[in-house]
Design a protein around this nucleic acid. Structure first.
Lengths: 221, 221
DNA sequence: GTTTTTGAACTGACCAGTCAGTGCAAAACT
DNA sequence: AGTTTTGCACTGACTGGTCAGTTCAAAAAC
């Protein structure tokens, strides 16, 4: 049977290793989101992941490398989710619909990956750290999806042409994250739909009573 | 809590001590906002404040007590600023105006106390820390000002009666903080007015057609 | 003369990072 | 088949540095 690597120096990262790394990610996210990076020890992370301390160093090289890898792992998941929520451009969806869809995806993502979201938000405002670049990349990528959408909407006249889409994108981003995390913190019992609905109604005001090209004019709730 | 003691030395805290403490606060805010709490040493703080290490222990008892006191000092300043921006209730100001004024105060506060804002945001999402209660209090107090205002506006019919003011308040809060910190981080050269203007325009759309007495709302774009 | 600050030395806990050693499953060889 | 070798993945006791917190005598400020 075909071995997966015919060539010798290929590094496919064995299945075993992959599992270990995922466990370490999960343990690290949980602990660091609650306590912060500095307050979380490598021993704790290893312990929670059910591996020995040395394994962390074997797999990642060090605490900060683990953390960086963890955040990159996080970005990928978030960016993929948001991009996946974008309807194919050019399809006949109503102007505001794509925006609402992306925001919903954001809310759902935070609901499902709460710890990761907390961790990223807590780290997002420190300008001095080694991994600031990584954090910035996350923000840029996530906000970029929203901003890009706003650009499209201003281009086709659904939004005022002089809208500062960069600022608006960051505003919407902050809005979604804050609302979603407050929801998880203070009223976790509320269903996602309710939260998303309330958010969508607010945003609807932004996109405005747009001359929607036919379709249900958002009154079916 | 702290009223201006114009006359007395009732306070056990001498003027000299007060100065020392304020210097320590300022040094601690600057360092911790950049590096984080655990990564900042007492020696650093004392050094930056131009004070001996022993003085920290004489004045506060320890690092964590200094930090707690610092955050309480921060709350007071923020809450005072926001409340100070509220026009006297019952005065004949236009419905949306009070809201805009509070948001402007928020933006300005962050512009002037950037480090403090960063520090508070970084702590805001960690649920497991000793001083989480203090942080929560800050958020509640700040968001409370906004939410209270929204309640008034829904009561007098300026906003839809079924608006979830709690959620909307937290949305606006997150929006302001995110925009303001992004501004300081990425485009610090922009004048406050510009940022505030862009925000105000969005809020006008977001919160919905505020039936203002002759405002510029809701034309469709 | 009391309060506050200084400065420097010391302690002990805590923790990131190291490394010699273990286990084990799949090759390589007989 | 059975035996040996290889090297990946992991282990955990240990090391060396760091830092919060202590102490205190003496100076400075009030």
């Amino acid at each position: 049977m075909d071995r997966m690597s015919a060539s010798t120096s290929d590094r496919p990262v064995s299945r075993r290793r992959e599992t270990t790394q995922r466990r370490l990610f999960e343990a690290a996210v949980a602990l660091i989101s609650e306590q912060g990076y500095e307050a979380t020890t490598v021993d704790e992370i290893a312990g929670r992941a059910g591996v020995a301390k040395g394994t962390v160093y074997y797999n990642f090289g060090g605490k900060s490398e683990l953390y960086t890898a963890l955040m990159e792992w996080g970005v990928t998941r978030l960016a993929d989710t948001l991009k996946g929520a974008l309807p194919p451009s050019g399809s006949g969806t109503a102007p505001g619909e794509a925006l609402t869809a992306v925001l919903r995806a954001g809310v759902e993502f935070i609901g499902e990956h709460e710890s990761l979201a907390r961790l990223l938000m807590a780290e997002a405002w420190r300008t001095n750290r080694a991994w600031y670049a990584t954090v910035l990349q996350i923000r840029t990528e996530a906000i970029g999806v929203i901003t890009g959408l706003l650009d499209e909407l201003t281009a086709d006249g659904s939004l005022p042409p002089d809208l500062d889409t960069g600022l608006a994108g960051s505003a919407l981003f902050g809005m979604v994250v804050t609302v979603a995390l407050d929801w998880r913190t203070l009223r976790p019992d509320r269903p996602v739909e309710e939260v998303h609905m309330a958010l969508a109604r607010m945003v609807e005001g932004l996109v405005g009573p747009v001359a929607s090209t036919g379709g249900t004019s958002t009154r079916d709730f």
